[in-house]
Every structure is written in structure tokens, then in C-alpha cells.
Nucleic acid binder design. Structure first.
Lengths: 333, 333
DNA sequence: AGCAATTTTGCAACCGGTTGCAAAACGAAT
DNA sequence: ATTCGTTTTGCAACCGGTTGCAAAATTGCT
């Protein structure tokens, strides 16, 4: 069925090496043989087998793209950017859906079996140890949307979640709110922990402001709605920083159902600025995470590490900013 | 760096074949050598190289997952189900993001270079010829969410879009609407064409009902909102069948902004029943497409075709049903 | 113990490419 | 025409596995 190197070589009347070299960037072939080979190749419809060549070159151009988040709409944007970005650089994403796994062993083994050139872990909930398991297995890896540490063992690209928490707090403070709250994602998600920490830190210097914290069970609409509904049974805060946008939308739904108005009765600020946040019927005030930059940098970094595997682990954090929309009352004055 | 077959063979004091056979299902190895090999393998942390073995077995266990839809939230559900379903069967999805391409040549070449065992084209907008290009290149292929034809050249799994159009029309008729409309997705999408056809067919026997048709430029919120906004400048229909859920949500946003009430002033029925349609602040009446069944069948079919490549092209269509929620007034009586 | 039938094993060739090396071809200069 | 330096070419070994085949080892029987 498949046409191979030797078929082309035979037809062109040259050696297999000659054929190989015409398809190898920067190899030594005369114009004459190259022409013969290319003619034979097109006639036969030959294209070199990437799998076979990887065996000797040691490069598959496969990148493992590992994620456990297939329910948050922002991840469709993430996958879109990753797959396009990888393709543009001649790399192929091998997608791994972690579902409920927390042990990296299976993914590590699988991606090793396929000799991926590198791995990108795209998750804001997995601990640093997850990505480290790939590094320990000798694979270049970058953790996108991961937690920043001062002495990283693995490349991390993302945002400063602590700073975002602080930024959210400041936005609420600036609007004169006196009772504020953080409605986080799952309590064990690193991003939630850091956002909570920054939020509390910024408010520590404002003892006149009442702060409370609670957690949703997931970064999801239902979880956000359920947690907000629970809070509305008591005396809710005037303004909330929600763990992310989809949680915010869930919370908004609960608020609306309770007959309260946004932003007059309750204000919300989210985080991510996913496409949906711009939808006019949602119009969510949120902190924008620069997705394209994060993903571009992640790919750059994994490529750089493939070329120099001993490259020192690096952290790249991108600045976020508040996007003013309709779920937080305007700044006074 | 990597530990190979020969390392294990050497350590276990057996031949390379022996090692190979211990890791090959159903090969002939005595319990004694198997034990020796397994011991050596775990000591060395060996796991067989799938790429290398594919060279002789002719199976990579890679499946090309090709899609051009990275903006419609339902496709996150689609990718989740596909990746999990493939993984559960020991297959690995190699994701191809088509973006703006309509020519299959590049994808065909790329997936051939990686010797994928099969290809799944997941798209409701690509023409049948796209999937056929993979078959012509000798790869088992199934087109998920594709267009049904009476003499298919390629496996198709999905829904009967014509029947869905009819079903939507009947839902509107049953509610006594006299002015109805179809607000479709892109006019060149096969799914849109078929849904429009079914819709018109069902209404052909109801000359007392006024029908109109228009198209959004994409299956997206913005496109749905823009098209509905345009329609609201004139005299809109009483009830709309929207090309899909995300279009419906865009339309709802425009209706809401115009100060009209749903479903009293205008009714909407969508198609897909994506997770978001259930969100209480959206609460969209829609036609449910059984995603899990479609995707399960697609995988089954591609696997079956890998095993028997001469398998006759087959069409598997799954029934859809109306999910009653809040955007269409209840049935009379 | 002896023999045939069966199972297990290693050899060697192969999958589809790449690449170091030496020989062959080429080109320029004398 | 000869020589020398450079480029191009093919040979053969290799990447990490698999597998047909024949030899070796084991098993079951008498």
C-alpha cells in the first residue's frame, strides 16, 4: 500500500540515501539527482514516514498536551491556541485527557512510549509535582497555568495568581465596598489557593473591611451557582471575587434567581476573560488573563528546552488587568 | 538515556526476541523467562517503544482527530468524549486543528506521515469530500456529525439533520405559531442546509403558516446576535428555530436587548443541548443531540474499519428529541 | 530410558528511514 | 592530461523493535 523510500530510489535509479537526503534539510545532493528523485517521488505520491525517521533522528515532533480540564469553556480557547501554535511550528499535539487521574505515572509511561519530544501540562489545578514527573522521566516539560515557586524544578508559564487576588481586592476596595468575599474554585487547586492568599493579603491592611471566603467544589457553573445560592441564604457580601469566569456566571445566575440586582445589590468580578464574558447577556467584569501570550510562551519554552535539555527551569508570568464591564459598579468619581 | 530492548535482554540473560515476546500479547514465552525479563525490565524501568514497534506491526494506535470547530463550546464536550473514548480503547488522539483550511491535502499528508491507524473528522460544516480524501489515501475514516448520503463513500455518524429540521418545525406548529423562521448557521455548512430543508419540508403542508429563512455567518454567539438584531429591525417571526444552541443564545441576547420577552414575544428552539443550555440563566428549549452515542459509535466504527479495511461504508444516525425548557411557550392544553 | 510431539528459544532478516565513511565523480588549475 | 580539492554518491550499519524459521529444550507416553 504505502510507497517507501526504496520504491522511489528504485524508480529514480539512485540509492536510498540519495532519496533520504533530498528530503532532509541541508543534506548534500546535486541538483540533478534531486530533480530525478523529486520527479519519482511525485509520480509515486511519496511522502517520508515521520515515525520511521524519528527512530534515528530521535525527534518525533510530537508534543504531549496534557490537561484535566475539559469542562471549563475557556479550555476550548486554550486548546485552539495550543494546537494552532504547535502546528505553526511543525509540531503535533498528542492530547491526553486526565479526567480524574491525579497520578502522573500512566501519562508519563504513555508519552514515553510515543517518544514525544516534549510535554505541556495545561492545568491550573494540578500540583507542581505532576509536571515534575515528566521532567524526572527525562522529557522537556512546561507547566502552563501552573503555580509559581521561587525555586522551580520545571518551567512554569502563567499568571501571578497572588497578584490577581490582590488586584481583585483592590478593585473592590476602590469601589468602596465594606463587605467583600472570595468565592473560590476547588480548595485544593493551586490557583484557588494563591488567589485567595493575594485577596486576603491586600485586605489585611484594611481592617475596616469585612472579608469572608468560601469554596465551590469545581470551576463550573453548577458549583458556582450552588455556592452562591448557599451564601444567599445568609447575609452575603456586597461584592465577590469569584475564582474564575465560569464560576462567576454560575454565581450571577443564583443572584438573579434570588431577585437581586447586579451590580447594585451584589457586585462580581471574575478571572480569565473568556470569550463568553464578553457576551452582552453576561457582560462580566473580570481580570483578563493573556491566553495567547501564555500559550505562545509555553510553546517557545518547550521548544527551547527540546533544543537545550539542560536549560535552567524558568518562570514566565504575564501581567493581568481588570476589564471593566457591567457586573461591578463603576469607580466613584 | 532511554533503556531499550537490548539492555533488558542483556540484563536478563536472554535474547532480544524473548524480551519482545514477553511484552507481546499472546506470544510464546515460558513462565521462567517471562519472570526473568519482567524483573530486569522493572529494575531498568523499561517500557517498550510504541513508535519502533509500529514499524513492523503496522499499527501506531494513533488516531487523527480532525476538526475545524474550536469556537463552539459544544466542541469541548466533543473533544472530552473523543479523547476519553479513544484512551479507553488504548488509542491516542493526534489532534488536527483545521482553522480556516478547506483543502484536506495537508491534513492527509501529515496524518500519513505519522501512519495514523485511522482518522475521525469531527465537523458538521465540512463537505463529505473532505473525509473522502482520507479514505482515498487509504486510511480508515469516519465522519462524525457529517452529512448523510444514500450512497456514502465513507462512514458517517451523526444525526438526521433533515429530520431535526422537521422536528423543530413540528414543535413550532404544535404550539400554534403562525409566523415562524429558521435562523441558520453558515449557509455553506451541510448541517445548516439539511436543517433548513427539513424545516421547510414540514411547513410545506401548512400553507397558513408564514415561513422565512436567514443565515448567520458562523455558528457563534456574535453571529446569532447580529442576525437576530438585524431581523428585529423589521417584523420578526413569532418563533425561531436556530441553527444551534450557541446561535440561539446570541439570538436571545439580541431579543432581550430589544426589550422583548421570551417566550411570550418571541420563542426560540435550538439544537445540540450543550451543557450551557441547561444553565438556569439560559434555560434553552432545544433539540438534544446524543453526543456520547455519536462519539462512541464513531470510535467503534473506526476501530472496526481498522480491523477490516474493506468494510462497507455505513451511516449511523441517532435519534434526537426535543428538550422542553423555558424559551418556547408550552404546548397548548 | 527412549521416542515423538509440543513448546520455547535464538538467529537473522526486516519495518522505513538516517548517517559516517570511503570511494567516485566533478571542477578548477597547472 | 594530470593533479588536487571539493562535492556527491552508495555502502553498510544503525535506530528499537517484530517475526518466520529451524534448532533446542521440554513434556508426555510407552
Amino acid at each position: 500500500m504505502a510507497v517507501t523510500l526504496r520504491d522511489v530510489a528504485h524508480r529514480a535509479g539512485v540509492s536510498r540515501s540519495a532519496v533520504s537526503r533530498t528530503f532532509t534539510e541541508g543534506a548534500s545532493v546535486s541538483a540533478k539527482t534531486r530533480a530525478k528523485v523529486e520527479k519519482a517521488a511525485t509520480e509515486l505520491g511519496y511522502s517520508p514516514n515521520a515515525i520511521a525517521s524519528s527512530l534515528t533522528t530521535g525527534r518525533t515532533k510530537l508534543i504531549g498536551l496534557v490537561s484535566n480540564n475539559f469542562h471549563n469553556p475557556i479550555f476550548l480557547e486554550v486548546f485552539d491556541l495550543f494546537t494552532r501554535g504547535l502546528q505553526d511550528r511543525g509540531l503535533r499535539p498528542l492530547l491526553v485527557n486526565l479526567s480524574h487521574e491525579t497520578d502522573p505515572a500512566n501519562s508519563v509511561r504513555m508519552l514515553r512510549q510515543y517518544s514525544v519530544d516534549g510535554v505541556i501540562v495545561a492545568s491550573s489545578t494540578l500540583p507542581p509535582s505532576f509536571a515534575e514527573a515528566f521532567r524526572d522521566a527525562g522529557m522537556p516539560v512546561v507547566h502552563s497555568f501552573g503555580r509559581y515557586t521561587t525555586s522551580p524544578h520545571v518551567h512554569v508559564v502563567g499568571i501571578d495568581n497572588i497578584a490577581c487576588g490582590r488586584m481583585a481586592a483592590e478593585a473592590l476596595i476602590a469601589r468602596g465596598h465594606r463587605r467583600v468575599a472570595f468565592l473560590g474554585g476547588p480548595e485544593n487547586a493551586t490557583s484557588t489557593q494563591d488567589r485567595a492568599r493575594g485577596f486576603l493579603e491586600a485586605l489585611a491592611s484594611h481592617p475596616e473591611i469585612e472579608v469572608s471566603i468560601s469554596y465551590a467544589t469545581a470551576y463550573s457553573f453548577d458549583a458556582g451557582r450552588a455556592e452562591m445560592a448557599r451564601l444567599l441564604e445568609g447575609t452575603p457580601a456586597e461584592a465577590f471575587f469569584c475564582g474564575d469566569d465560569v464560576l462567576s456566571i454560575g454565581a450571577l445566575s443564583a443572584i438573579q434567581d434570588a431577585g437581586l440586582r447586579v451590580p447594585d445589590d451584589i457586585g462580581i468580578i471574575g478571572l480569565n476573560d473568556m470569550a463568553m464574558a464578553r457576551w452582552q447577556n453576561i457582560d462580566l467584569t473580570t481580570i483578563r488573563q493573556p491566553l495567547a501570550e501564555i500559550i505562545g510562551a509555553s510553546i517557545d519554552l518547550v521548544v527551547a528546552t527540546i533544543e537545550r535539555p539542560d536549560r535552567h527551569p524558568e518562570t514566565r508570568l504575564f501581567p493581568c488587568r481588570v476589564i471593566e464591564r457591567g457586573t461591578l459598579r463603576p469607580l466613584p468619581g
